[in-house]
Deep mutational scan, measured.
Amino acid sequence: KLPPGWEKRMSRSSGRVYYFNHITNASQWERPSGNSSSG
């Protein structure tokens, strides 16, 4: 399961899957890690 705020999306241009955070408006190709504590 993804960390809070993150969701899986697909890029229309490349067709690749990326991850988008609707809370911080951040996007990245790598899967966000939800196990590590923020610090």
Rank of each mutant, 00 (worst) to 15 (best):
P4W: 10
V17F: 10
G34P: 11
K1R: 13
R31N: 08
G39A: 13
Y18F: 09
Q28N: 03
S13M: 08
S14D: 10
S38W: 10
P4M: 08
W6F: 01
G34L: 13
G34E: 13
W6A: 00
S33W: 09
Y19G: 00
Y18C: 05
E30F: 07
W29G: 03
E30G: 06
E30P: 05
E7M: 05
G5L: 02
V17W: 11
E30V: 07
S33N: 11
S37I: 12
A26Y: 09
S38F: 10
W6D: 01
H22I: 15
S13Y: 13
E7L: 07
A26F: 09
G5T: 02
M10Q: 12
L2E: 11
R9S: 02
R16E: 05
N25T: 06
G39Y: 09
Y19Q: 00
E7K: 05
S13E: 13
M10N: 09
P3I: 02
E7S: 07
Y19M: 00
G34S: 12
S27I: 15
K1I: 10
K1N: 13
R9F: 06
S33D: 13
G39D: 12
Q28M: 06
S37G: 10
L2D: 14
M10V: 15
S33Y: 10
S36C: 13
W29E: 05
K8W: 07
P32L: 02
S38E: 11
T24G: 01
S14C: 14
R9Y: 07
K8N: 01
K8V: 14
V17R: 02
R16K: 11
N21M: 03
S38M: 11
R9D: 02
M10D: 05
L2K: 09
W6Y: 01
W6G: 00
P3W: 03
S11P: 03
G5R: 01
Q28G: 01
R12Q: 15
S36P: 12
F20C: 05
N35W: 07
S38G: 10
N35Q: 11
T24F: 05
S11Q: 14
P32F: 01
V17N: 04
P32H: 01
Q28Y: 03
G39W: 09
N21R: 01
G15Y: 04
S36H: 10
G39K: 08
S38D: 12
G15H: 07
T24S: 06
G15E: 04
N21P: 00
A26G: 06
N35A: 13
E30D: 09
Q28C: 07
R31E: 09
A26V: 15
L2Q: 02
V17T: 09
N25S: 08
S38T: 12
P32Q: 00
N35H: 11
N25G: 15
E7V: 10
Y18V: 01
S37R: 04
S37K: 06
G15V: 03
S13Q: 11
S33L: 11
T24Y: 04
V17H: 08
G5A: 04
N21V: 02
S36L: 12
S14Y: 07
E30I: 07
S36R: 06
M10F: 15
T24E: 03
G34V: 12
Y19P: 01
K8Y: 07
G34W: 15
W29A: 04
S36W: 08
S11V: 12
A26I: 14
R12E: 15
S27H: 10
S27F: 15
S27P: 03
N25P: 00
P4N: 08
N35P: 13
S13L: 11
E30M: 07
Y19T: 00
F20S: 01
A26N: 08
W6P: 00
W29F: 08
Q28R: 04
S11E: 14
K8R: 12
R16A: 06
K1M: 12
Y18H: 02
P32C: 00
W6S: 00
I23E: 08
S36I: 12
S11C: 15
R12S: 15
N25L: 13
R12V: 15
P3S: 03
N35R: 07
G39L: 10
N25I: 04
N21Q: 02
K1G: 13
G15M: 06
S14G: 08
